[in-house]
Nucleic acid binder design. Structure first.
Length: 424
RNA sequence: GGAGAGGUGGCGGAGUGGUCUAACGCGCUAGUUUGCUAAACUGGUGAGGGAAGUAAUUCCCUCCGGGGGUUCGAAUCCCCCUCUCUCCGCCA
């Protein structure tokens, strides 16, 4: 959530900033609820204070005296009135919280305006997508692809979008996970192996709830959500804690499978590995001192870009426009890999600065140099999402004999130099 | 899954209806003393929210695992949930 004090004091500025995002909000309604809530809280608290004081006097009275009996009668009605006022205050506070939590984070001034894909600003590019590999074809059209990534078996066992990876492809997936984790470790991210089911409080803290309710798999009997990204359990590790400023920045990474319902986005654009309900991803997460967070965002972006460079895959980095970034995001880069067979860009990483939005919501704070408790800034980045990287490797690295060259950094980890069958 | 015991501040730990403004100890911190360190002594030491003030600050409300209840009044009594420990069962 944003800072309520900032909202009260800079209402117009907040309104203008939120107009840049795609979310419909009614700032005035929130402020009205806030005022109403505060008035009712003041009423309830002064009634309670009065009652407390009267109660204190009672302890000095003899319980058997008439004075005590009289006082009790008086107190009964006082208590009743206090309870009523407290109920009103509680209800109005809940109404406020409900509306307040629907306000998205403010977009950073440095990001471009816009609501469409081509409003995003390309800020970096590596490799060439014009220099066509004449052997490249879409990964799902590669003759041996169906054998290595078995959608039909996955559909039988689970449903669409849950493929089996077989043999060398499975090894390649494992090798990538290993490579990404090794790189993150080398960059100072301490590894987590987190739970992949989370409760509603966690999903709310990181901003998946209420905004993306329908996008997560949910187990009603346990009231647990399957994580859409490792960000959720990893960020919540420090929920409701006050961190020591000397510990900052805290850096963690985690490999997890990720689960997304992707309701309503099934179709031609999502063939093969382009979009799955379950996929593997390595995520990096940081908790930082607020003044450093924009630099830390650049560091995450550079880290993720470095992975693609080492894999030798062409990519571009987009600075996302205000209308295209997520609910809790302030600034976000998307990194897209070039899939030479499909001749399209595939998003393989999203690097985000949530500023203090997530941290305030999640109660992750630190004691600043003045000794005051303040929300940290949280950031995260995919480093990287595996199926689309796999798709890019298969497409971009196809050779004249029909096999695909395994990137050098993965060769030792997998024991493979090439993947697939030689064409007969 | 069954039985029992528990969950109190940063930590240990007392408290079984009003004097809890949570004792006492440890830790941390400021000061005094001191050639330095240590020790001793003295004071301070949480979070969230509300009101007033430019502000430093002051006053108030809430918080003893979570939620609900009883009561004029709950850390304390009742109900539900949850977690930890011990024993038993089951099990990758």
């Amino acid at each position: 959530m944003i800072d309520i004090n900032f909202l009260r004091e800079n209402t117009e500025l907040v309104k203008e900033a939120l107009k840049r995002k795609k979310f419909k909000v009614d700032v005035d309604a929130v402020l009205e609820l806030d005022e109403r809530r505060r008035a009712l809280i003041t009423d309830a608290e002064s009634a309670k204070a009065h009652q407390n004081q009267a109660n204190k006097q009672m302890s000095s009275l003899d319980k058997k005296s008439d004075a005590f009996r009289e006082k009790i009668q008086e107190m009964k009605s006082l208590a009743l009135k206090t309870k009523e006022l407290e109920q009103l205050a509680k209800k109005s506070d809940q109404a406020f919280q409900l509306a307040f939590i629907e306000l998205p984070n403010l977009p950073d001034p440095s990001i471009p305006d816009g609501f469409k894909e081509n409003d995003n600003l390309e800020v970096n590019r590596f490799g060439s997508c014009e220099e066509v590999n004449r052997y490249a074809i879409p990964h799902y059209d590669i003759p041996w692809f169906d054998e290595g990534v078995q959608f039909s078996k996955g559909t039988k066992v689970t449903g669409a979008g849950f493929p089996f990876y077989i043999g060398d492809i499975a090894k390649l997936v494992r090798g990538m996970i290993q490579f990404f984790l090794d790189e993150a470790n080398d960059a100072g991210f301490i590894e987590f192996a987190p739970p992949i089911l989370v409760n509603a409080a966690s999903a709310t803290a990181t901003g998946q709830l209420p905004d993306k309710e329908g996008q997560m798999y949910f187990s009603p009997s346990d009231e647990l959500y399957l994580i859409p990204t490792a960000e959720v359990p990893v960020t919540n590790y420090y929920r409701d804690e006050i961190l020591d400023i000397k510990e900052l920045p805290i850096k963690h990474c985690a490999y997890t499978p990720c689960f997304r319902r992707e309701a309503g986005s099934w179709g031609k654009e999502v063939r093969g590995l382009n979009r799955l309900h379950q996929f593997d991803k390595v995520e990096v997460v940081k908790w930082v001192e607020p003044s450093t967070s924009m630099d830390e965002l650049e560091a995450i972006r550079t880290h993720s870009e470095g992975l693609l460079k080492q894999l030798g895959l062409p990519f571009r980095t987009l600075l996302m426009c205000a209308g295209d970034i997520g609910f809790p995001h302030s600034k976000q880069y998307d990194i897209e890999v070039w899939a030479a067979g499909q001749e399209r860009w595939l998003e393989v990483s999203s690097c985000s600065n949530f500023t203090d939005f997530q941290a305030r919501r999640a109660g992750i704070r630190f004691r600043n140099h003045d000794g005051k408790v303040q929300a940290v800034h949280t950031l995260n980045g995919s480093a990287l999402a595996i199926p689309r990287v796999l798709a890019a490797i298969l497409e971009n690295n196809l050779q004249d004999d029909g096999t695909a060259l395994v990137p050098e950094v993965l060769q030792d980890r997998t024991g493979l130099k090439t993947i697939g069958k030689v064409q007969s």
